[in-house]
């Protein structure tokens, strides 16, 4: 089992594959994928993650709701969360950060930025 467990919550298979593909360049990481907020929440309750990356606009449960639920979960309230979204407005950024997201990345993503953020939050 790898040292770091990462969860990627993204409804778009293209983005999910791209994020996973980029994160696999980090050493000693295991990546779990989830299709939406509900799927993500199920996986969070079943496993312990060191980092969560989530989209905002997703069916069933959006990323904002997911961030809020994770922050209110005693077992996972300290897990670093990165929001990856198309929403580039300052209000959206402020809202996500106010709810407890640690970082906010806008699409289209730059793999170097993504990796640097992940490394920083994982303490690599």
């Amino acid at each position: 089992m790898a040292k770091y467990q990462i969860l990627v919550v993204e409804d778009s298979p293209t983005m999910r594959q791209l994020i996973t593909f980029s994160l696999k360049r980090l050493r000693d990481v295991d990546i779990t994928e989830a299709n939406d907020g509900v799927d993500g929440l199920k996986k969070i309750s079943a496993n312990k993650f060191d980092l969560i990356l989530t989209d905002i606009n997703m069916p069933i449960m959006d990323g904002i709701k997911l961030v809020s639920l994770v922050r209110n979960d005693a077992n996972n309230k300290d897990v670093p969360i990165v929001v990856i979204t198309t929403e580039g407005g300052q209000e959206d950024r402020d809202r996500a950060l106010a709810l407890g997201a640690n970082s906010y990345i806008t699409k289209p993503i730059n793999a170097t930025t993504l990796l640097d953020t992940a490394k920083e939050l994982l303490g690599m």
Binding site: Q17, L18, T112
Partner: peptide, 20 residues
Amino acid sequence: IEAENNNLANLYVASYQLHS
């Protein structure tokens, strides 16, 4: 090389998904 690698990753994913 890092930038090229990132670009190739994007192109690979786009191509992979289109023909999936």
